[in-house]
Write a protein that binds this DNA or RNA. Structure first.
Length: 427
RNA sequence: GCCGGGGUAGCCUAGCUGGUAAGGCGCAGGCCUGGAGAGCCUGUGGCCCUUUCGGGCCUCGUGGGUUCGAAUCCCACCCCCGGCGCCA
C-alpha cells in the first residue's frame, strides 16, 4: 500500500503511473471519499468531545444527588448520531481500501518502460554457454535416466507439477540449501526456518490480490494459507513492531518449502521440475532504512550472482520493465540461468526492493534513536538465494555428459561426501 | 480438545463491586554541579483539524453487545502461562 498523502498531494502523478501500467482505478472518487471521510471524522470527534464533557457533568450531578435526566437524554442522542456517522465512515473506508489495495507501488526511476517480457533490459551476462558434441537432453530426461526422479508416479499420487526426488538428487537438494545458507551466514545473515502457514492479513500485507488468487493455497476451515515463499513469513516476523534504527539493516536468510498454485500457467513448462507446485528455496530478506534500500538491493543481487557463479551456471541479469514489475516491487532484477535444452535463459532468481509498500500494510516501523518520537516505515527487500528445484534442473542440463552422467559442481562436493559425478546405476 | 490463571504505553506493574488509566523502570531534554552521580521538573503510541501557535479524538489482546457513561459487566475470537488428554 502506498501513502494516501501522495495521492492527495499529486493525483496527476498517480493517474499517469496507472495509465502507463494499463490500470484503471477511480482516483477522483477515491479523493472525494477520502475528503468526506475526514470531514465526518472531524464531526465525530467534536461529538465525542461533547460526550466526554457531558459524561463528567452526569457523574458530578449524581455525586451531588441531583437527577441528570436531561443530560442523559442528550447523551443518548449524541451516541446515536456518532453511531450513524461511523457507519458512513466505515462504508467510505471500505471503498477507499478497495482502491488503495489495488494501487501498485511507485516504481524507481531506473525501471524501464514497457509492458511485456521483451521490454526487460539486460544488465549483464556472466559465464560461458556450454557447447555439447552430442544431443542435449532435458533435465527431467537426465534425472529419470539416472533413476533419481519420479514424475509419473507423483502425478498418480498428487497430480501434475509434483515429483519425487530420489537418492543423490535429494542429497543434491540439501547440498544446495547448505551451500546457500553457509554463504549467507558468512555475509552476516541470520538464518530462519519459518512457519509454512500464515494468516490472511499477513499474506494480504505482502502480496497482491491477484497473486493471492493465482498462487496461494488455502487451508480448509482455517484462517491459514500455505506460504508461496519464506519472504512472506520473514516479512511478518516484525509486523506491528517499531525497530531500533541503530540495528538496521536486519538481514535474514529464510529456508522453507514454497507452495504455488500456478493458476493461469496451464501448458507452460509442463515437463520436469522447472515449474512445480512445491519446491524448496533459500530466500534473502532485508528490513532497512529508506536511505539504505537501493544499496541493499544491489547487495542482495550480488549475493545471488555469487551463488550462481560459484555453481558455474551461466546467467544474465535483467532489469524488469514497468508492466512486468507486479504490484509490490518498486524495482526488480531477475537472474535468468542458461537452460541448454531450451537454448535460452530462464528465471531462477527474483530480487525486489518493495520500499515501504509491505511495511505500511504490516505496520513495520523504526526509530532512528530510542528516544525519538517520530517513527518511519522501514523498507523491505527480498531476493532468492537459491530455488533448489530450478537450480537442480540447471545443473543437470549444464553439467550433463555424453554417457548420461552429470558432473557435480565443485562447491557442492563437500556437502555430498565428496561425490564428483552422478552416474547411471549399472543394472 | 478440556479445566484454571493471564494479556494495561518501549518494559514492569496497580485499577477490574462501571464515572478524566495511577505508579515504577528505561530513554531524552532541562534545572542543579568544576565534572559526574543523586535529586527535582518536563517529555515519551496512533489519527484528525491547523501555514504557525495550538487544539481535539482514539488507544487497556481483537471484534461485537449492555449502559447516559465500559480497562471494569456480557458474548465471540486470538495469543501467552500452568495442569489434564492426545502426539512426532
Amino acid at each position: 500500500m502506498i501513502d494516501i498523502k501522495i495521492i492527495r498531494d499529486n493525483p496527476g502523478f498517480i493517474k499517469d503511473m496507472l495509465t502507463k501500467r494499463g490500470l484503471n482505478l477511480p482516483i477522483d472518487e477515491l479523493l472525494e471519499w477520502d475528503k468526506e471521510r475526514r470531514s465526518l471524522m472531524v464531526e465525530v470527534q467534536n461529538l465525542r468531545h461533547r460526550k466526554n464533557i457531558v459524561a463528567l457533568e452526569v457523574a458530578n450531578m449524581k455525586k451531588e444527588g441531583k437527577d441528570p435526566i436531561t443530560l442523559m437524554q442528550e447523551m443518548k442522542i449524541i451516541t446515536d448520531e456518532i453511531a450513524r456517522l461511523e457507519d458512513r465512515i466505515a462504508e467510505l473506508e471500505n471503498k477507499i481500501n478497495y482502491v488503495m489495495m489495488r494501487i501498485p507501488n511507485i516504481p524507481h526511476e531506473s525501471v524501464p518502460p514497457g509492458t511485456s517480457e521483451e521490454d526487460n533490459v539486460e544488465v549483464r551476462r556472466w559465464g560461458k554457454i556450454p557447447e555439447f558434441d552430442f544431443e542435449v537432453k532435458d533435465h527431467d530426461e537426465i534425472a529419470i535416466g539416472l533413476g533419481l526422479l519420479e514424475i509419473e508416479r507423483a502425478s498418480k499420487a498428487s497430480g501434475a507439477r509434483f515429483y519425487y526426488l530420489k537418492n543423490e538428487l535429494v542429497k543434491l537438494n540439501i547440498a544446495l540449501i547448505r551451500f546457500a545458507l553457509d554463504l549467507l551466514t558468512k555475509k552476516g545473515f541470520e538464518i530462519y526456518q519459518t512457519p509454512y502457514m500464515l494468516r490472511r492479513w499477513v499474506i494480504e500485507g505482502v502480496t497482491s490480490l491477484q497473486d493471492f488468487e493465482d498462487m496461494i493455497y488455502k487451508i480448509e476451515g482455517e484462517d491459514l494459507y500455505l506460504i508461496a515463499t519464506s519472504e512472506h513469513s520473514l516479512a511478518a516476523l516484525h509486523a506491528n513492531e517499531v525497530l531500533d534504527g541503530r540495528r538496521l539493516p536486519l538481514r535474514y536468510a529464510g529456508v522453507s518449502p514454497c507452495f504455488r498454485k500456478e493458476a493461469g500457467a496451464h501448458g507452460k513448462d509442463t515437463k520436469g521440475i522447472f515449474r512445480v507446485h512445491q519446491f524448496e528455496k533459500v530466500e534473502q530478506f532485508v528490513f532497512c532504512k529508506p536511505e539504505q534500500s537501493w544499496e541493499e538491493h544491489e547487495f542482495l543481487l550480488s549475493n545471488a550472482e555469487e551463488i550462481y557463479q560459484k555453481l558455474g551456471l551461466p546467467y544474465r541479469v535483467v532489469n524488469i520493465c514497468l508492466g512486468e514489475l507486479g504490484v509490490v516491487a518498486a524495482k526488480k532484477y531477475d537472474i535468468e540461468v542458461w537452460m541448454p535444452a531450451q537454448r535460452r535463459y530462464r528465471e531462477i532468481v527474483s530480487c525486489s526492493n518493495c520500499t515501504d509498500y509491505q511495511a505500511r500494510r504490516l505496520n513495520i516501523r523504526y526509530r532512528e534513536m530510542p528516544h525519538e518520537e517520530r517513527t518511519k516505515y522501514v523498507h523491505t527487500l527480498n531476493s532468492t538465494a537459491i530455488a533448489t528445484e530450478r537450480t537442480i534442473a540447471a545443473i543437470l542440463e549444464n553439467y550433463q555428459q555424453k554417457d548420461g552422467s552429470v558432473i557435480i559442481p565443485e562447491v557442492l562436493r563437500p556437502y555430498m561426501d565428496g561425490m564428483e559425478v552422478l552416474k547411471p546405476k549399472k543394472v
